[in-house]
């Protein structure tokens, strides 16, 4: 079972897959190294040497410092990627009256009922996926016309959960 993440350093994208013992960076395999963290400094034992790097935060941005050099850094886990794609879809506008499940999951809570008025980006329900609760937000202003799911329902990706008008 692998965890996937996309690491972007500068404009260079690296697809990383990892399990307990292995790391793959753009397909290149490494034994999972030992590493430790103090404050924002990571010390890692790799290729028979010990290296250090620092991840600094500046507002919403991350910066990697390594060997006296600094690079903008973006970390996106698979889950974050799904959420990002999902919010891009729901914020699309044209299909804005429908709230679809952007990933398979479990409806944990429904925050609205038929007839409620919602504003764009109000939380409307919570979908548990990948063992995390994710807030699903209204894609547009409107009134809830239909609620097609109930709490504890399992939904597939693409299931229409709410209809707004």
């Amino acid at each position: 079972m692998f965890d996937n993440a996309t690491i972007t350093i500068g404009k260079a994208k690296y697809e990383v897959r990892q399990n307990d013992n292995e790391l793959f960076v753009n397909g290149q395999r490494f034994d999972m190294p030992e590493f430790a963290l103090t404050d924002r400094l990571v010390r890692v034992r790799i290729n028979d040497s010990i290296e250090e790097f620092v991840v600094n935060r500046n507002g919403d941005d991350l910066w990697l410092s390594f060997h006296g050099r600094a690079f903008p850094l973006v970390i996106e886990t698979e889950r974050e990627k799904l959420l990002r794609v999902a919010s891009q879809d729901t914020e699309g506008g044209m299909s804005g009256a429908i709230v679809k499940a952007q990933m398979p999951g479990l409806v944990v809570r429904i925050a609205v009922k038929v007839g409620d008025t919602v504003k764009r980006s109000d939380p409307v329900l919570i979908l548990e996926a990948m063992k995390m609760e994710n807030e699903v937000r209204a894609p547009a202003d409107g009134v809830v016309k239909e609620v097609r799911v109930k709490e504890r329902d399992s939904v597939d990706k693409g299931t229409v959960m709410l209809v707004l008008e």
Binding site: I9, G10, K11, A12, Y14, Q18, F30, F66, F71, P72
Partner: peptide
């Protein structure tokens, strides 16, 4: 600095691994 490929290949891997182990993916990114 936009040419991120000047870093060794293992580095993005360890960043992802550290991000996972320290359960900070939300904290780091958002």
């Amino acid at each position: 600095i936009e040419q991120g490929e000047v870093v060794p290949t293992w580095l993005p891997g360890v960043i992802a691994a550290a991000n996972k182990v320290f359960r900070t993916e939300i904290n780091l990114a958002k």
